[in-house]
Design a protein around this nucleic acid. Structure first.
Lengths: 201, 201, 201, 201
DNA sequence: GATGAATGAGTTTTCATTCAT
DNA sequence: GATGAATGAAAACTCATTCAT
């Protein structure tokens, strides 16, 4: 009996996952408004109506997809990063991973880049929608650690967080929307070098 | 007779301008897809049908609004910046102006932030749509000049451009969506300091 | 110019009227929930979208149709009835007219009979929906007058109103839903006789 | 073994009964089209699919609910009424009981009022649907008896039936939708008095 | 050129019904 | 028999665009 229930639950989880995966795929390519529920349903291999057994409506699907995606990425990142010895290495590794993940799965980069910027209108109807909060907090903690261990000077953690996240986000947006017109890894290294040493002669 | 024609032309220009202004207002608040033509028309005080005498369709209106906006901003900036003596001062001034403009007119900041992130789908139907090209080229030129005058070291201009634009864009987004929870000017100064001197002890 | 405006307005009024007429036709035959907007639109010879220029939504269309219908009927009735000399004659005439109207236009009888009885649910979302109020008040006034002129004894006007309206309404419902299995005029006369003289030997 | 079967059968009967009870509850509040099968199923504490083991579809459920309801009411009424000596007393008692039942269980009054008025469309797909036939026949028989026993004059039984049923139905509708703004018993007595003695001075 | 009423294609969402377990 | 997850047809409603005036 229990095995049965477990199997059922697993099946449902699989279906939920399939829908989320399809949603990310379609949202990232079409954007929220041009994405059709029927298209996502077809990709996930379920009926249109089934979508509504798992998600209240289209907007909830977006929010859920976003939440689950960032949460999963963050969990993976944290476990990989914890292997590094110094805080500076961990910060460095974080940036590498961030770029790696989005290089390997550009649709996720697009999804984050495009859907992240919702209209004020959207934020008004979903006040709880703060998709990057955890992600950004995590960067800030890495920076604070690095300052404490004295690998970097005592700059404002928030300021550096804005630089790191803002730059990488824009880097990935440009890279993915401009058809990869430059070498991502190379550009990343150059950026890290500038942030590390500054621009002064 | 000629005066009449001029007046008419002026009236038309006024109308075009009014539509663009209204479009920026509405697009910036609602985003492209949720913005209604009829809403923009009402704000611009013209009939819905009139919109189509000036712009082929909704997407063209977006592109035109974007182009005109960045062009105007850029013209203003260039004339102000040219007063500065060194290339580094000009770069510095540029960042200040960028922040100033978007502090004064947050709807423009929102407009850029939102419309910048169009879906690949959108870029496919509007291959010519390259919204920030000129703006970014301008930053790049300022950087190249600064390198040439040796105020900054010989870093990759594209890399620094990504840092500068990406960071300020994210700074402004955070500032405006998080209800100005931090002091913009202060944060900007801290960021500039980090970019200038790096993070190393 | 004014003639033009008038013509335009007339055209719109015609359209509005056509929609209401079609709505009554379809609602009365199908009932509110099975009636399709597209069906009503086709009957009224307008596009589906046009419906929404004149009525906010399907429920508002129902309410508007109902209001306009009862109002028009009442205006006609009042003018005809006023020709009668005594209050009792007017009350008598009212019953005749009521039956006549619905005999001539059975779809209106059906519409009133069917749509009158909405679910509590419906009344909750449309608290102002009290379609028969005026109609029933009018009957009550006729009765009060008849009592004053002493053509009928001093019964409770509300009680008689309930008898008259309830009976005729049910009579028409039975007649229209049971495929006119009895002679309406004849039955009406019998009913009036009973109300007049009572059932006692 | 037999006891087991009986218990099982009882369980089934219970289930059927529970569904019908829930159906009346929901249909009476929501009306046929807005009532959801899943809602009725939840109230009856059975699975959605189970509904279809007992009733062919939603419309059959309505018809069955109606039939069983009127049948049960009628059986109760008949047994109570049979205690009365004269036909006129029985008719009188019938009216009292009718009002009593629907005062005690207003959801039944609503159910009758709403479902009685189905669209011609509905009657076409369910030609056998004649919800009040038995109920009305019963009134008619009581009237015929009263005429035969000469307690009332020789009026058309059908006409008086329409008056009695129509008036009481409307009385109850007004009373329940207008939030009991008048005293039901008192009004009923006034109505009976008018029907008995007529309105003439 | 300007208007704005009319259009109708396109999409989300609901819910009665089915059927594998 | 009982379940309830899955289905997919059906319909209200929106809004960019057109075109007669």
């Amino acid at each position: 009996m229990k095995g049965n229930t477990t199997k059922l639950l697993e099946k449902q989880l699989d279906k939920r996952e399939a829908i989320i995966k399809a949603a990310i795929e379609v949202f990232s390519y079409k954007g929220f408004h041009k994405a059709k529920i029927s298209h996502i349903a077809k990709l996930a291999d379920v009926a249109d109506g089934t979508m509504y057994l798992y998600f209240k409506n289209k907007e909830h699907l977006l929010v859920s997809a976003f939440d689950e995606l960032t949460e999963n990425i963050l969990i993976d990142m944290k476990s990989t990063i914890s292997l590094e010895k110094t805080a500076l290495d961990r910060l460095s590794k974080f940036i590498d991973l961030h770029v790696d993940i989005f290089t390997e799965k550009p649709e996720i980069a697009r999804f984050l880049a495009i859907e992240l910027r919702q209209s004020p209108d959207f934020y008004e109807s979903y006040p709880a929608y703060n998709p990057l909060k955890e992600y950004i907090s995590f960067i800030e903690i890495l920076i604070i650690d690095a300052i404490e261990e004295k690998s970097i000077r005592a700059i404002d953690p928030k300021a550096l967080t804005l630089i790191i996240f803002g730059t990488i986000d824009f880097l990935l947006t440009e890279w993915s929307t401009k058809n990869q017109s430059f070498l991502l890894q190379e550009m990343k290294d150059k950026i890290v070098d500038i942030i590390r040493w500054g621009i002064r002669v």
